[in-house]
């Protein structure tokens, strides 16, 4: 699992680059808006070269992605994910965004499946259990977990409590709960008490490893 929304904010960019450099293969990626920044600039300030999840398909390390938004409009150049998909090198599982985040939340919360009205009557409903409640039809969707979650926060304390900033939360807090090992990338690490308890966005219980960026890192 790779946190954030899509775009620079909330994306664990340094952890992603480290994973690429590690060279491990046969990866299945779970993300949200995935792989469109490099070709469209989505969510990146103009002065920086965008980095996105497409890098794992460009490098051949990933063979599958579960996400909600893997390709931009038709007028944009082909993304690395679409290229890999067209060449038969990648399976792309496209999930409605609200269903994707709820499946991740459910995995972390000990709920194996849930019913949602989203997607009824569409291709995403095919093969899934349907059930009516109060006259409306719902789909059953199953929890989604991962071996690793790479997430991004502004600040961690040494216990692993995390504080987020602005719109960088997105998929990060839920993903932190849904993986066997959660690794967080932060700008700053502080002693316990350095994060206001009212501002803890992810509990230390969920966090296994903390990676602190170098001071003055030019990446967002």
């Amino acid at each position: 699992m790779i946190g954030g929304f899509g775009g620079a904010g909330g994306q664990p960019t340094r952890l992603m680059l480290a994973l690429r450099d590690l060279g491990v293969g046969d990866l299945t990626i779970i993300g949200n808006v995935a792989g469109i920044s490099k070709t469209t600039g989505y969510g990146w300030p103009d002065h920086l070269d965008p980095i996105d999840q497409g890098m794992f398909f460009e490098s051949g390390q990933a063979t599958k992605i579960t996400c909600s938004f893997p390709v931009p409009g038709t007028t944009n150049p082909l993304s690395d994910i679409e290229k890999a998909w067209r060449e038969g090198n990648a399976e792309v599982d496209i999930v409605p965004q609200g269903t994707l985040i709820e499946r991740i939340r459910a995995a972390g919360a000990g709920i194996p499946a849930f019913y949602t009205p989203t997607g009824v009557g569409t291709p995403v409903a095919e093969g899934k259990e349907h059930r009516d409640f109060d006259g409306r039809t719902y789909l059953m969707e199953e929890a989604l977990s991962a071996d690793f979650a790479l997430i991004r926060a502004q600040k961690a304390d040494t216990r692993g409590n995390l504080q987020y900033i602005g719109t960088s939360r997105a998929f990060n807090p839920a993903m932190a709960t849904a993986a066997a090992v959660t690794i967080v990338e932060v700008d700053e690490i502080v002693e316990p008490g350095g994060i206001d308890p009212e501002r803890v966005g992810t509990l230390s219980t969920y966090v296994d490893r903390i990676v602190v960026r170098e001071a003055g890192d030019p990446l967002p």
């Binding site: 893997p70 965004q97 609200g98 989203t118």
Partner: peptide, 19 residues
């Protein structure tokens, strides 16, 4: 999704349209 392309992006559209 445009069928001819064979791949598309749902994002939040299904949740918004349905709800």
């Amino acid at each position: 999704m445009i069928p001819k392309r064979g791949i598309g992006s749902i994002g939040g559209a299904m949740d918004l349209a349905a709800n």
